[in-house]
Amino acid sequence: MTEIPEHLRKRAEAAKAKAQGEAAPSAGDAAPAAAASGDDKIPSHLLDRGTAAADQPAPSAGSAGGGLAAPAGSSGPDGHNQRLLTVVKSGSIQDTKATPQDKVHVWPHLLLAEFLAALAVTLFTLLFSIFVNAPLLELADFNKTPNPSKAPWYFLGLQELLTMFHPMVAGVTIPGIGLIVLVMAPYMDKNPSKRPEDRKFAISLMTVHLMFWSVLVMIGSFFRGPGFNFIFPWNSGLFFEL
């Protein structure tokens, strides 16, 4: 056992003696105070100090932080100048969520699934790449415009729109609005429910949106031939490169 240093032991003894001495006189005050406010558990001597501080005239009218740098004269018992500002009951700020959740370990339950999925995709890409070559047409030539000229497949919906509307509308307004609505979806859809039966409108709207682009992309990809005219691929062949 290590010995308690002399000065610390002395301080502790002095504090203990002081506490015992204080307990006796304040006992009389504590009883009525406790009775007045049923579940109040604030020790009465703290309350006393609070009222005492409030009664004292402010050190200087201008200084808002005067309480922090209180002069020695206005310090509380024992030279301390802490002051009780408020008592916060534990329940109000410590919001404990004790409801247990059904959880599983990521290893092996999730990592195994991820690994297998990654493996499957790698295998698929590898096999597909062995059997199907990426297109490499002849060298780019500014003087030979292929007919039809098509954008990459994911932009063929836009190109399809260009055949129907003014470029401003097809290239900017419609995709712009579509994109803004898509980004803003969580801020516009205020329905808190995630159940499909409660979100019939949102689901139908999104389905129409997705179908709109999918159908346009399909038409642009497979049903447009020379001059970007409408064709049937089974009659005129395929004008589509990935």
């Binding site: 490499l136 780019a140 098509k150 954008a151 190109q159």
Partner: peptide, 25 residues
């Protein structure tokens, strides 16, 4: 990435794509 092979497909797909961009107000 579509432009990088610098073949007919790349050149004209990107031409079509960037022409659309030109319509931004």
């Amino acid at each position: 990435g579509y432009l990088l092979p610098w073949d007919q497909l790349a050149l004209w797909a990107v031409t079509v794509g960037t022409n659309m961009m030109g319509f931004t107000p």
